[in-house]
Design a protein around this nucleic acid. Structure first.
Lengths: 342, 342
DNA sequence: CAGGGAAATGTAATCGCTTGCATTTTGCAA
DNA sequence: TTGCAAAATGCAAGCGATTACATTTCCCTG
């Protein structure tokens, strides 16, 4: 009847149930190695005491946590949400738990989060994109924590990845746009430094221009930060050029939606006056008005496959294998041929 | 030169640096209780070995983790994103780490996640809404883990909360709508079972009707699952009534955006033919076309204040205090008076 | 009813770190 | 120099689980 009892431990349960701690532990981890009667006693004690195992202690003793960490740049917009959701669901099905951390697109925070998750005992890690200090990969190796890169696929990279080829996807989309007759192009993109995906998309776009006989140097590029507002601002800037582009590519749908809004505000109609092209195909893209022409990314599939790959390597010990998934243009309503030129 | 060295421990660092483990530990946790020289030696050893402290061990020994868990219904849409982001940022500023888990709106998963986070040593928990089994609160109490409810504010509830009054907010919005002359109302909402916020909004709406002398029973209510698609479907259903409503309330912006899209598809213009009202004021609301009239929720402020409250109780031991924040209607373009009636 | 192998349970070492207390160093004033 | 308080460091006892390995109990079979 003392008011402040400390949280019960395995030991307390053992005492209460009149068995040894080993039995209680087994009862929890391998129920069928324990007799029915004992199990009942133990379970009763557990409920009575409101016992819950201490994760840290258990992790330390068992040297595994059935936990996988995921580190994403941001949770602000839904870019990674669908993928992560799928990732988590698949993990759950195999008895694993996902831990998420976000970095606000900052390398230093990312490193901090990686260390934090590893310290927390994450058995493996899911990372977005390849770009990061080599020393981080060394660290992970030292710690014996497998890391899988996603949202990108680069067969040349050291790190295994489950994702799609950003370069190829953007090039394909750009090729279609150029085929429509657009010659004056612009790109609004997230900062490319430390962001291999953004960079690959940019380079892919230039490649398409080159392939079509255009001078890639003519591409007007604006780098900005994520966010609808920023997309809007960048669009305004882009369109203020003496010879404004007829098609504006955006590194992602969030920026594209901002551009779209700005276009409306500037009295430009899309796609008649100017085409706007996104990337990612998040929910926003379908809701935008007009519905956004964008590059579809297999979010759920990616999350699912990544989870499977990680679990597999954890259980089999076989190194991770890269997997390429397709990302393809989806044409909705924001793309049309350029206005008849002067 | 052996290829598979185990991950280094505090002990290894101590040996390498030629000091005791106590010193290394202090060096990490209270740098200023250690001499400059020693600190350098230790740091060198740490870097050399690629050491990273084992969180579980540390948590066990110290009995605290500087970790706060947040459990949200979903990460799929951005509803909780802004709030969480703010929550995390504030936490970070005080040296705390946030762990997120999502439940897919399922009570059993939520319980599982709560236990999991507690077992992981979360020093405190952030929960969405009040509705959950009383036994969970008992459990948290037993474990000595303070839990703060957010996204809702209910002075009558047992649990402390930092949030806004869903009932009052919806009533206020509804009052404005009714004042415009709308008499035939409908509500598309998330499932109300186990969701006190949805329920409060519904009741708030009815209260406004009653206050205006309308029969609350006349409100057409459709419960559905989150998602743009579902919002669209529900809207179609609502409008198929023999006497379709002139204003359709939505329990949240995601549903509202779906409704908006469906309206467009049905050739109805908003707000001329029908008004659509959302709730939450997530980014989506401003991007939608036309921009959504909705109830603004102080996401960032809420996350920020919740973090402060939790840290405060953790450090001072003073029980959590509830805080009410305002949530107010923001009128954009999807609300107008009803069409001249027959 | 004895004997034996399987099943159930117990014993105790161990995981990596923190921290109260004891001990050694250091820095300075006398 | 010497003496001393303060600063720095070391010692060692936990923290709460897991799990070899040892021991006891059970259930059959002959």
């Amino acid at each position: 009847m003392n008011s402040k009892r400390p949280t019960p431990t395995l030991n307390d349960v053992a005492t209460e149930a009149g068995v040894s701690t080993a039995t209680v532990s087994r009862c929890l981890n391998f129920p069928d190695r324990v007799s029915q009667r004992t199990r009942d006693k133990v379970m009763t004690a557990i409920n009575l005491l409101g016992y819950s195992p201490n994760f840290g202690a258990s992790a330390m003793a068992a040297r595994r946590t059935k936990t996988i960490g995921a580190i994403i740049p941001t949770m602000e917009n839904a870019i990674f949400a669908r993928g992560l959701q799928a990732f988590q669901e698949t993990l759950r099905g195999y008895g694993y738990t996902m831990l998420v951390a976000s970095t606000a697109y900052r390398a230093d925070i990312e490193e901090e989060q990686i260390r934090s998750l590893v310290a927390r005992g994450a058995d493996a890690l899911l990372l977005i994109g390849h770009d990061r200090d080599a020393q981080i990969y060394t660290f992970l190796e030292t710690q014996g924590v497998p890391a899988l890169v996603t949202w990108a696929f680069d067969p040349h990279a050291e790190q295994p990845s489950v994702g799609f080829d950003n370069h190829a996807a953007m090039r394909e989309m750009a090729a279609s746009v150029i085929a429509l007759g657009h010659e004056n192009l612009a790109l609004i993109t997230a900062r490319c430094a430390g962001n291999d995906r953004a960079r690959a998309r940019l380079v892919g776009l230039r490649a398409a221009m080159e392939a079509a006989g255009q001078d890639p140097e003519l591409l007007q590029v604006i780098q900005t930060t994520y966010g609808i507002e920023n997309g809007a601002a960048a669009f305004a800037e882009v369109m203020s050029a003496k010879k404004p582009p007829t098609a504006v590519f955006c590194g992602n749908d969030v920026l594209a939606v901002g551009a779209l809004r700005q276009a409306r505000e500037m009295g430009l109609s899309v796609p008649e006056d100017v085409s706007i092209i996104g990337f990612d195909d998040i929910e926003l893209a379908q809701v935008a008005y007009p519905p956004l022409t964008t590059v579809h990314v297999p979010h759920a599939e990616m999350g699912h496959r990544a989870a499977l790959a990680l679990i597999d390597t954890l259980q089999s010990g076989i190194p991770l294998q890269s997997i390429a998934l397709p990302a393809t243009p989806v044409f909705r309503k924001t793309l049309a041929g350029p206005k008849a030129v002067k």
